[in-house]
Design a protein around this nucleic acid. Structure first.
Length: 425
RNA sequence: GACCCCAUCGUCUAGCCUGGUCAGGACACGAGCUUUUCAAGCUCGCGACGCGGGUUCAAAUCCCGCUGGGGUCGCCA
């Protein structure tokens, strides 16, 4: 039976590196018909916080990484103590104060890593290691080994930063008489500059990406591509499909740099693929959750706006930044924009257009366009000479969706009012 | 510093195991098409096997060294 685990420490939010580790474990379990264990490593009572446990669980669910079993190491202190006492009784460990310390052998330790092949350590350098701390809590390696063995973990898939821990843990397995699991050490994820990912260089926590308005499917898809490829030059791939192609053997050895650019591109791809209705529901939920402009807006209206911006947004936050003019009564037109587009003597055109639109019994994209084109023709203007100023007057922006669609979605009242204001100012 | 890991376009990668394809794709970037603008989409372009030795008829692919990058050296996890 294949059984893997993800063992985060609740001293912070779920990190994207951790998420990728969890993802590979999860994919391997699914691909092999095995089990995925989630184990909270909260032996450090000082630094572990319950709110981080909740947050990590939430992020895992958000990503769709469901678990078959859930453990907390804080519930298992008796188990670690028993095993430490056993080693003491067998003379394999000794006491120093209240701490329990393991004797380390002087011999070469070999591990076979599924990704890297054989790695040899000269354990001469290994110092006797603490198993139980003076305060009665187990050390990381001890709790980890006892749990992995008792939970019958067949494959330990974790970050490369754990390679140096492996020989120490192997000694613990041997002392305890437990079978040694298979190992696969994943390459690390670096920031864009190739350094360690940190809050300073960008978002590191999964929930930060969530609040940027990244879809979980896109984040999962992006993360799986960091160090792995489904082949056939395919990049956009569902988790379900990816599982059918997953194999540890194909995981890369080299660290990968995280690219927010590419993640955003991928998110845009997912957004464009979605039907407008479900997408609009997600956007609406996002607006409410983040307490942003439009949170009280009617769902149908949101759907129309999303329709206009579906191909123009890469995250939900970006959507919000660009569509404020729909949700607010007043818009602000920056002076440079005003000078460039609204100081060319189009008062007459604006005035006539505003009047015609105001008189429309049936106001929609077609009738608005007709009114607009009539004005342009009567005044012998070029359409584009009026399109751009009107867009600025209505949206405060010089770029955006087609003008007539925008006018229709904005509605008669706001459209007319903004044209009138533009002339007055 | 010691020990360990790694090395294909700026970035993510395919190819490496089982030497022989113009080293393929994607993001970004540049150009064009389309167009009321911006996106989207389509077409084209730019762009890499870190260096040096071997082995071989033939090396991105196998071996060694160098250089460079990363990780670990806690009664943290």
């Amino acid at each position: 039976m294949i059984k893997v685990r993800f063992a985060p420490s609740p001293t912070g939010y779920l990190h994207v590196g951790g998420a990728r580790t969890a993802l590979f474990n999860w994919m391997y379990a699914k691909a092999q018909g095995g089990k995925f264990v989630l184990r909270i490593e909260n032996t450090d009572l000082e630094r572990s916080k319950p709110e981080y446990v909740d947050s990590i669980l939430e992020s895992m669910k958000w990503l769709g990484l469901t678990w078959d079993e859930l453990y907390r190491q804080s519930d298992r202190f008796d188990i670690y103590r028993e095993h430490a006492e056993k080693l003491l009784a067998e003379g394999k460990a000794y006491k120093e104060g209240d701490a329990v310390i393991l004797n380390m052998p002087k011999e070469e330790i070999k591990i076979y890593d599924l990704i890297r092949g054989e790695i040899v350590f000269d354990s001469d350098a290994l110092k006797d290691q603490v198993l139980m701390k003076s305060d009665g809590s187990p050390t990381y390696s001890f709790a980890c080994v006892v749990d992995d063995a008792l939970m019958e973990i067949s494959h330990v898939i974790r970050g490369e930063d754990h390679i140096p821990n492996t020989p120490k843990q192997i000694v613990i397995y041997q002392s305890l008489g437990f079978a040694i699991p298979k190992y696969a050490h994943l390459p690390l994820i670096m920031d864009a500059e190739g350094g360690r990912m940190s809050k300073r260089t960008g978002a590191v926590a999964v929930n930060e990406y969530e609040s940027m308005g990244i879809l979980s499917e896109a984040l999962v898809n992006y993360l799986m591509l960091l160090g792995w490829s489904p082949g056939n030059n395919q990049e956009i791939i569902s988790l379900k499909k990816a599982v059918t192609k997953f194999s540890i053997k194909k995981i890369n050895k080299a660290a990968a740099a995280f690219s927010l650019e590419k993640l955003k591109w991928m998110n845009g791809q997912y957004i464009k693929q979605m039907d407008t209705a479900p997408l609009a529901e997600q956007v609406a939920a996002f607006l409410k959750a983040q307490d942003l402009d439009g949170k009280e807006c009617d769902q149908n209206k949101i759907k129309e706006i999303v329709g206009l911006y579906k191909s123009r947004m890469t995250t939900f936050v970006e959507f919000c930044e660009r569509t404020k003019y729909f949700f607010r009564d007043e818009i602000e037109i920056v002076p440079s924009m005003r000078d460039k587009f609204l100081s060319k003597g189009q008062e007459q055109a604006f005035h006539i257009l505003q009047e015609r639109l105001g008189r429309l019994d049936e106001y929609n994209m077609e009738t608005a366009e007709k009114a607009f084109r009539d004005v342009v023709q009567e005044l012998e203007m070029k359409a584009s000479d009026l399109v751009h100023p009107v867009r600025v007057a209505l949206t405060g922006q010089d770029v955006g969706p087609g003008l007539f669609e925008t006018m229709a979605v904005l509605g008669k009242e706001k459209t007319v009012a903004r044209l009138r204001n533009a002339v007055q100012n």
